[in-house]
Design a protein around this nucleic acid. Structure first.
Lengths: 239, 239
DNA sequence: GCCTTCCTGTGATGGCCGTCACTTCCCGGT
DNA sequence: ACCGGGAAGTGACGGCCATCACAGGAAGGC
């Protein structure tokens, strides 16, 4: 049995506006579930409709093609929720969810979730905002897939993943750097293409790898170089 | 000046559950606007936040890449709404909207829209469902772009556009068939690729074109053939 | 320590399809 | 009927990148 202290929804951002008693009540309605790394939490196409909350840990929202290729939609961490789609429209799950680490989940039956929406406008509004941001990021991704070449998508993702170093100006870091296969699945390409894209930059010194860290030595120069590359590659001359 | 009779929101699906008086009140808060074919209703990146309702006509939700390539997200007709994203999160418009035909629009300021959401749970729930279905179709599109080759995407789109003939079993029709460029922009490829994809099927007699109509003579056989094609193309042997 | 397993880098190959370039077709206007 | 503009079909060409293959590296278990 888990320690009772862990089983609370205080950290879930959807419930930020709720008072103590309402939250306690919800905690009572949840089922609790622990998942190990690599374990599948939810499977695309299944008929369940609960909404899930990540109390602790991280999960990946993904999908697999018939040929086994993996497409990643998002990575969610503690405090975030998923599974609202099925609860709202009653359709089968649109994607699969896989735990990345040891993860503690709370799951709320869809009926309870829908009741909550009726009673708590604040929660409803948060849900609206979450859905909105999903639509927006999906649209951006579609745009990228439609108009940006694979190699460039890799660079774009690298920039999205990086966080600025607190000390050195212009230095950005990705840590820990996930396996290249994971980056590949986020921008819909292959591990090899990601490796080649990064490899192309190591000689310039603008990109440097040390263990599980990737350093962008000077973000401004890096982006500059990217623009130059794009200009070369984009121009299609016919002799 | 427009005939007053046209200026009503009775046909807007978002407002189906509203009583007469509430609807009338909204009609008073709306601005009305008429757009001709090809006219831009909303531009990506602009800061406006009204929500728009299509009283009459059709619009395309699209985006343009720097190189001028057009990516279509959806086509909306009378009774449907758009522009909720900006109203909900206050961010700039995520896409542009272009009128396809002569179109009559009602636009409601975001503050009025947000008030409405507070007061009318029914409307809120409809919005939730709309957003949900946007997320779902976006996810499907991402999956298709990531794992399905351009030619196959064309066939998939053809099947989605077709409606069954009432008389002949197995006969499906697309009418009116839009310009191939438009189909291309929906599946993120080029006019030429669409033409070639269709052209490949004309000799077999399974696909037939007459003026602005495209006939799928036998949908079952057509899908069968598709599966066969896919199997051939997908297998990559290295001898 | 050693062995297993996963991750990484890189070469070779070939197919898909985006781009250009033209011709032909269709349709609406006058 | 004529003309003009957009749409459709089709050939040629070549770049990008997915796929296969294999070698070296890092990490963890016992």
């Amino acid at each position: 049995m888990q320690a009772e202290a862990e089983r609370n929804l205080a950290g879930i951002s959807l419930f930020e506006g709720l008072d103590e008693t309402a939250r306690r009540r919800l905690e009572g309605r949840c089922h609790w579930r622990r998942c190990g790394p690599g374990e599948m939490v939810l499977e695309r196409g299944s008929e369940s409709q609960e909404v899930l909350f990540i109390v602790q840990g991280t999960v990946n929202i993904v999908n697999f093609s018939v040929s086994g290729r993996e497409v990643a939609y998002a990575t969610l961490g503690a405090g975030e929720s998923f599974g609202e789609l099925a609860a709202i429209d009653g359709q089968p799950r649109s994607a699969s969810v896989v735990a990345k680490e040891n993860t503690l989940l709370a799951s709320l039956p869809s009926t309870e979730f829908l009741n909550l929406l009726q009673e708590q406008v604040g929660v409803t509004f948060k849900v609206l905002q979450n859905l909105t941001s999903m639509v927006r990021s999906g649209d951006i991704r579609i745009m990228e897939l439609s108009t940006v070449a694979a190699t460039q998508r890799v660079y774009a993702e690298i920039l999205r993943m990086a966080t600025p170093d607190t000390a050195v100006h212009g230095l950005w870091v990705i840590h820990p750097l996930p396996p290249l296969r994971e980056i590949a699945s986020r921008v819909s390409t292959t591990r090899e293409t990601v490796a080649r894209a990064l490899g192309q930059f190591y000689p310039t010194g603008l990109l440097r790898r040390k263990g599980r860290s990737l350093y962008i030595m000077d973000r401004a120069k890096f982006e500059e170089k990217l623009a130059a590359l794009k200009a070369d590659g984009g121009g299609h001359h016919h002799v």
